[in-house]
Design a protein around this nucleic acid. Structure first.
Lengths: 118, 118
DNA sequence: CTGATCTACAACCATCTGGTTGTATGATAG
DNA sequence: CTATCATACAACCAGATGGTTGTAGATCAG
């Protein structure tokens, strides 16, 4: 499946996929290697089909890729997409730092105009 | 409202709140200062009540805080919670780096055992 | 070939989501 | 006091979500 992660809808899909504990666990687990859907399903107290759906959501968001090996589908975390989400959050934090710097500048300017304290 | 962002449910709430373009926009906008809900609502093509709900979701996730000023409620982004989400994604990327390093080690060991190429 | 395993997918269901409108309350302006 | 503004919240609705069971196709083991 080809996935667009750059559009707004793509970002929606990424964060929505991350908004579930089971999916975050699959993501963190499958970053350590390749696992079949069955192997993943054994780790959770729900049906195979439910895990399969979670995997589909992760794949739809581009957070994992599937590779065929015989009758199995090996799941692997796509760290690039995780990074994409992380960078978006970095951007917000950066906006905040810029704002704080700007406030510091204003305060400094104010000080100069009023003569400062020395 | 007091919010738990550390539990699994708390993390769910954070990422779910981030999985909507309007909410991400509010978050990025309100990192630049304090804005009343009405001021925020003017920026989006939907009812005041709809924006109010988005703000409530962000507040429930701990991504914003509200401060009372007269009849207004001033919304401000809580960068600490944004950072918390970012750190979680950092963790996954870190797992990946650890794994890659381990593979490199294995390959290096393999080389030594088989004699390597020099 | 036959049976077992892995995956895919449809149908169903309760609950949640994201929007709407309408009503109520509190604070400000005149 | 009255009217207006900012907010809160309930009720409602269509569609999505997260689980279930059941069925069917592909591949592997013997």
């Amino acid at each position: 499946m080809v996935v667009d992660q750059t559009s707004d809808a793509g970002v929606d899909r990424i964060f929505h996929a991350l908004a579930d504990g089971t999916r975050r666990d699959i993501l963190a687990f499958a970053v350590g290697g390749r696992y079949s859907v069955s192997e993943l399903a054994k780790r959770y107290p729900m049906s195979f089909a439910a895990v399969q759906k979670h995997v589909a959501v992760l794949e739809g968001a581009g957070l994992i890729t599937k590779e065929r090996r015989g009758r199995e589908r090996l799941v692997r975390t796509d760290v690039d997409t995780v990074q994409k989400a992380r960078v978006l959050l970095d951007g917000i934090e950066e906006l905040w730092r810029v704002r704080v710097d700007r406030i510091d500048d204003l305060l400094a300017t104010e000080k100069r105009i009023t003569g400062g304290e020395r």
